[in-house]
Amino acid sequence: MQGHVTPTKTYLTIFGALMICTILTVFVRLNLGIKSFAVAIAIALVKATLVILYFMHVKYSHILSKAAVVTSILFLLILLVLVSMDYVSRSWQPRATPWEKHQVLE
């Protein structure tokens, strides 16, 4: 009565896609020897999206479930981005070293 019933075929298709992604990501790492952050994370993102949309029925569910997904991603990004902001920009400071030729910035 309440929710959308996903046909078995869809589940199996998604499962197949997830398997292919897993094999791909391991293959890239083991056989091509590529240690790429971007590739590994991109594949993980694809897998997560498939699970969220189909296994967790977000594609067919109430706007609030979608909002929950968006909110959690958004606030996770706030955490990660603002924390990295500190670490990335720490080295931007004019180098505070004792014997440096003094920069005249005044």
Binding site: I78, L82, D86, S89, R90, W92, Q93
Partner: peptide, 22 residues
């Protein structure tokens, strides 16, 4: 409120630039 926590850390050894944003 989730964007401002760094104002507790101006003197804490946080990047000065991050401090400006916070």
């Amino acid at each position: 409120g989730f964007f401002v926590w760094g104002h507790h850390m101006y003197t804490a050894g946080q990047s000065t630039y991050a401090g400006v944003v916070f």
